[in-house]
């Protein structure tokens, strides 16, 4: 098989042409749409309590709400800022808008987006990666809606018929996802996987750092390390053969 510098899913256009399309056509529309849908969604977020208050005429104890708010913000607010920055490079612009509007990011969107980019043969962080990631995130939203709807309606009935040990196996779903995805990326450059896990063990298990700071500290440590090593031409990713994902689709 002939080796080329282009990956299977890459666009034949020049970098400048792609940049032009993304900056002038794609990004403005994506940002405008993303902002509008996000604002609508924020309003929808508050419908459940408003509905209970006004439709059923239930008064609310605002001091209790304030007390609970302080507790919940301490837990969630740092992640509002950390997660979009940490996950943007894989999710892309549109993927970030959909993901932060509809949730299920680390357990659902990121792995699916990463697999789709691998299958399509595009570089993570590239313009083609943005397109493929968007398609992947759209697919996750459809699957998630179906799972949530069917789950909400049928889960209590179905659960009665499933053996307990089968359901208990889902306790290992997330550990399995992390193991598989770490290996997927480790196959690109295993040295980074070793460093990431060793540094994560130090930060997560042995350091006194607060839990909310772990992801940004590790992610930015890895980014700086990669930046430094790339400039010294150490631990580079070998060019893949242009294994045609698209041609494979025809088989």
């Amino acid at each position: 098989m002939e080796k080329t510098n282009k990956l299977a899913g890459e666009s034949p256009l020049s970098v400048a042409e792609k940049e032009e399309i993304m900056k002038k056509e794609y990004s403005p529309t994506a940002h405008r749409g993303g902002l509008i849908f996000s604002i609508i969604h924020i309003l929808i977020f508050f419908l459940p309590p408003l509905y209970i208050m006004f439709y059923f005429n239930i008064p609310v104890d605002w001091s209790a709400v304030a007390k609970g708010t302080v507790a919940v913000l301490g837990f969630s607010a740092p992640f509002w800022f950390i997660e979009p920055i940490s996950y943007f490079l894989v999710l892309g612009i549109a993927g970030t808008y959909i993901s932060f509007l509809a949730g299920n990011i680390s357990n659902f969107r990121l792995p699916v987006s990463a697999v789709a980019q691998e299958v399509a043969g595009v570089r993570e962080g590239s313009h083609e990666g943005e397109i493929v990631s968007t398609l992947a995130i759209v697919a996750t939203q459809i699957m998630l809606t179906l799972a949530a709807l069917s789950g909400a309606i049928f889960v209590t009935i179905v659960v009665k018929f499933l053996p307990k040990s089968f359901l208990a196996a889902f306790d290992w779903l997330l550990p399995s996802i992390w193991g598989a995805i770490v290996i997927q990326f480790a196959l690109r450059k295993w040295q980074y996987a070793v460093v990431a896990i060793l540094f994560s063990i130090y930060v997560d298990v042995y350091s006194p750092l607060p839990m909310w700071s772990h992801v940004p500290i590790i992610v930015f440590f890895m980014a700086i390390l990669a930046l430094k090593l790339y400039s010294k031409k150490i631990w580079l990713i070998a060019e893949k053969e242009a294994a045609p994902a698209a041609e494979g689709a025809k088989k």
Binding site: S86, Y87, L89, V90, S106, L110, A114, R123, E124, G125, S126, L174, P175, W178, G179, I181, V182, F185, A186, R188, K189, Y192, A193, V195, A196, I197, F199, S200, I201, V203, D204, V205, H214, V215, I218, V219, F220, F221, M222, A223, L225, A226, L227, L229, Y230, W235, L236, I237
Partner: peptide, 24 residues
């Protein structure tokens, strides 16, 4: 290429931490 290696390293950081937290 630089962006790709940085993305791979960052994602290994994010997923490595999750692996560590839930399994190691």
């Amino acid at each position: 290429k630089r962006l790709q290696i940085i993305t791979v390293a960052m994602m290994l950081g994010a997923f490595g931490r999750m692996l560590t937290n839930q399994s190691i």
